[in-house]
Amino acid sequence: MLDLKEVVVRQVAMKLKKPFQTVNGLVVVRDTLIIEAYDHNGNVGYGECVAFADPFYTPETTTTAWDMLKYFLLPVLNKSKLQHPSEVHEIFKSVQGHQMAKSGIETALWDLYAKQQKESLKEIIGGKYDEVESGVVLSLTDDLEKQAKEFSKKGYKRFKLKVQKGKERETIEKARQYIGDVPIMFDGNGTYGPEDMLHLKNLDDLNLHMIEQPFRQDDFYYHHQLQKEMNTYICLDETVKSEHDAFQAIELNSADCINVKLGRVGGYQVALDIHNFAKVANMPLWCGGMLETGIGRAHNVILASLEQFQLPGDLSESERYWEEDIIDQPFKVKNGKVKVPTKPGIGVKVNEKRLDERTVRQFEFAMTS
């Protein structure tokens, strides 16, 4: 059995350097849940539940995730005879949905297991790359010229733009003035409808890296229709919440690539299943971001070390968002790449003092089985 003594769940408030604006919501303070999984030998595994305070991205929030962890997921886990973190996904099948809450505890258990094995989590999950290519996201509130020039100096391999419908061409052409030939994509955030099909097709001449999630999250059909008629890659994000969603997307030709987020799909085991489907189908993947602390960012970088993650992910360095991260050695981007941690587990040291200072509330759950 996997040695698990206690789980601590903290709600942490992290003030962003500047507000992050998308067409769906504005984030000024990042409320997130940090999950700590302790064993009897003093090892601790860390996970992060990446739900936002408000339900603008998914139905989950920090409040719903808190309650799910406290009253459902941890009690279900406590009744199990867990041998390996790969079993957590199956154990949680009795609870419908709530992938972000599930991912928060599942990723903490993977970190704990790797530390018990005295191995890096990259090695445990079969990661291939020692460093991964990083892209950066520019929000609607960013100074496009200033930020584009600044991030170009760091060598970011891809720029993702948050855009307003009808102003995509204007924004993209302006960005190109400052970043040159670096690939550009934009995030549709599911705001387009069938009536926008011609409008989107008319953007094909911009030679974009991809268009991410143009249509609503439950749509496979119109993504398939657009994918057929454009040379530009069509990428799915919110549509893929499970390995079955990924299978459908591949079988229905609804996408050229998939953005995989640990929180959105429920953790590593589902992400690994998606990775294996994509490998068979020769579909490239990339790892998306959710304004994570250094804990969630470490998990993302490790996920992106898998072979099929062939496109630059949203893996910008810690100082992009935080004056002070809650890890001692924040992630840095050098020549557009981030090094994959090699120390046991997720390979980062959490600054407990800083974590305590940013903790709004917490609860402890003793594991008795």
Rank of each mutant, 00 (worst) to 15 (best):
K115M: 05
G127L: 02
Y129D: 11
W110T: 10
T107K: 00
M100F: 09
P75E: 01
L73F: 01
I91Q: 06
S80N: 13
E123H: 06
G126P: 06
E123A: 08
H84N: 15
A108T: 11
H84F: 14
V88A: 13
D111F: 09
I125P: 02
F72W: 05
M68Q: 01
S103I: 03
F72D: 04
Q96G: 11
Q117C: 13
K102H: 04
G104V: 09
E106C: 09
V132K: 03
S103N: 11
D67S: 12
I124D: 07
Y129S: 06
Q96S: 14
L69E: 01
A114K: 03
Q96N: 12
L73K: 01
H84R: 14
D130A: 12
S80A: 15
D130Q: 14
A65M: 04
V95A: 09
K118N: 15
W66D: 01
H89A: 14
K81G: 12
M68A: 02
L74M: 01
G97I: 12
H98C: 10
V132L: 04
Q99H: 15
E133W: 14
H98I: 11
E90C: 10
I105M: 07
K128C: 12
L73C: 00
G127E: 05
D111I: 10
T107F: 03
E119A: 14
